[in-house]
Design a protein around this nucleic acid. Structure first.
Ligand code: SF4
Ligand code: SF4
Lengths: 160, 160
DNA sequence: TGATACAAGATCAAAAAAGTCTTATTTACT
DNA sequence: AGTAAATAAGACTTTTTTGATCTTGTATCA
């Protein structure tokens, strides 16, 4: 129930490109260094993004990557799913035939519904949003993860 | 980004018990058979559910499991997280220190927000809901996964 | 034409998930 | 008390997924 490394890297890569602006050519090496991504791994991810039409890859000396679409038109969901495949909260959502029960199962319906909700949320966020927020806004410390305090450990409840 | 097998089994187990009614003793064997869960694996999962106070385990001959709480008071989120741990959409949400960027990162905030949303949704669903829906409602075929049509394959973008 | 940069697939290693095995307790029944 | 039936608990194994690298090849520019 968590983003893979590859997914995270893809987001970083596209975000970095979005910050440079659409169409600006950036070498893989630069992206890898700046966004802290293993170079070869980035190559793989970039290829997937290219196939999806999100970025363009230029070969040869002085080659590199560049954003093909306007950042406003690229959503977080799109980038993530390009790399990790469609998000499924449970196997039976993507492959109902994997559970003979799926046509009757109440839980199944919950997964379907919730998953759609999640995907919609991620589809609302564009890389234009992300890039501008990152360039402009001051950190506002605590505004984010304060809502997510380190959860009480299962076995050691509290600061024992 | 998907429920583990253990999580799925936990849900099945609790749902089965909820259908029998709170406090009704059911042998592990029966649950395993009826809910299609590997027996020994179920044992592990049950122990976690017991530690969490959701079910009670009776030992000895004619032992078994039974629901300790009223189904209305058990949520899907609770059961799932008991087994797979707190849901995190991205590592940095649970451990902000894992990414030096997390205090500034716009994406980070999206993950935090979305994750909370997801968890809230799952926390709305109780096992009373699930059990009654399953006992009462007719299947309504297509009402669920029709919203989730098999997505266009990554490499063959739809009926282009 | 050679240096630079990316492509693409094979391959490897580490981690997580799924399941099984073994041994020990607990309880009921006779 | 003795035995059978049930679960406990942890070690262990297998399989799958993830993360990353290696190798060989191709494109482009100076
Ligand atoms: S039991 Fe329900 S939720 Fe679980 S796999 Fe089958 S259909 Fe999906
Ligand atoms: S870059 Fe942002 S989203 Fe990615 S790990 Fe760091 S904080 Fe989280």
């Amino acid at each position: 129930m968590r983003l893979t490394r590859a997914g995270e890297y893809a987001v970083r890569c596209v975000l970095y490109l979005a910050k440079q602006g659409r169409g600006v050519l950036v070498s893989r090496k630069e992206i890898a260094a700046q966004a802290d991504i293993p170079g070869q791994f980035l190559a793989k991810i970039a290829q997937q993004l290219a196939r999806q039409g999100i970025i363009e890859i230029l070969q040869g000396a002085s080659g590199g990557y560049r954003l093909l679409l306007a950042p406003e038109r690229i959503t977080l969901l799109e980038v993530v799913e390009t790399v990790i495949g469609e998000i499924f909260l449970n196997d039976c959502v993507g492959r109902p035939e994997s559970c003979p029960n799926s046509t009757v199962c109440a839980v199944h319906r919950v997964w379907c519904r919730t998953q759609q909700q999640l995907r919609n949320s991620l589809d609302q966020v564009t890389f234009a949003d992300l890039a501008s927020e990152e360039l402009g806004t001051p950190p506002t410390p605590g505004a984010c993860c304060a809502e997510n305090p380190p959860p009480p450990e299962k076995d050691l409840p509290g600061p024992a």
